[in-house]
């Protein structure tokens, strides 16, 4: 017998499947915009009208609110155009959970990447790997990035590799961006670091609660 409950569940699953596909495409487009260094396009994927929209990037700090997120993208993530510069991040290992109420979603990707960064001589070939955790929120039928946290894993000279070259895993000791708040987590690989399973894999959930805000940093691996 087709009960109301079965109908509701089927509709929920169809909506979740459709959402997971859209979220994967949205992040693919955002990643392409990041690689091509198109600041306004990157920002177009964010839920900028929300007061609590946020972007956290490695150890540059947490940028919360429209003004701060825009500043982070323009001042830190996108560099001035320069010959020889190249960034090529990729999305792999997708873990996407859409809430049962299909109003929010939590997602995580592992992101291998390469870069070429101009120097006084030839550009330097670099590895830049990390993980990207994202909360999405459905706004007017479109999935928008609500909170995004890029967790740096390695950033190093390609010739030396991630053990020999740890010079780029932490930011230089220069003033942090005036709109940044303290980092919530930064633990890149180094010969002295211990991996600790962060960011965590998102788990199935019914609807987004305030306590979900830091699911990426959840150390309790039993749940």
């Amino acid at each position: 017998m087709i009960t109301e409950e079965r109908k509701q569940k089927l509709l929920m699953n169809i909506r979740k499947l459709s959402s997971m596909h859209e979220i994967q495409n949205t992040m693919g487009r955002l990643t392409a915009a990041l690689n091509f260094q198109r600041a306004d396009e990157i920002l177009s994927f964010f839920a900028l009208e929300r007061e609590d929209v946020s972007l956290e990037y490695a150890d540059e700090g947490l940028f919360e609110g429209k003004e701060a997120v825009c500043a982070a993208v323009h001042d830190i993530i996108v560099r001035p155009e320069e010959k020889g510069y190249m960034l090529d991040m990729q999305l792999t290992t997708p873990m996407i959970e859409v809430a049962d109420d299909v109003k929010t979603a939590k997602a995580l990707w592992w992101c291998p990447g390469i870069a070429a960064v101009p120097t006084e001589t030839d550009p330097q070939a670099q590895w830049c790997w990390g993980m990207t955790g994202v909360d999405f929120i459905l706004e007017n039928g479109t999935w928008k990035v609500w909170h995004l946290h890029y967790f740096r894993l390695i950033r190093c000279d390609y010739k030396k590799g991630w053990v020999e070259d740890t010079s780029m895993i932490n930011r230089l000791n220069t003033p942090v961006h005036p709109l940044s708040k303290p980092s919530t987590y930064h633990n890149p690989y180094s010969p002295l670091s211990v991996r600790d399973g962060i960011p965590a894999c998102p788990r199935p959930y019914a609807s987004y609660e305030d306590s979900d805000r830091n699911w990426m940093l959840n150390r309790d691996k039993t749940k």
Binding site: N13, I14, L17, P94, E97, R195, D196, G197
Partner: peptide, 25 residues
């Protein structure tokens, strides 16, 4: 629909296994 949901759940399961594999505790 359930079978398609399973594909995503298995991707998350394997992603979770990759996270556990990395930290080795």
């Amino acid at each position: 629909t359930e079978r398609l949901m399973s594909v995503w759940e298995i991707c998350s399961l394997r992603g979770q296994a990759a996270i556990f594999h990395d930290d080795q505790h």
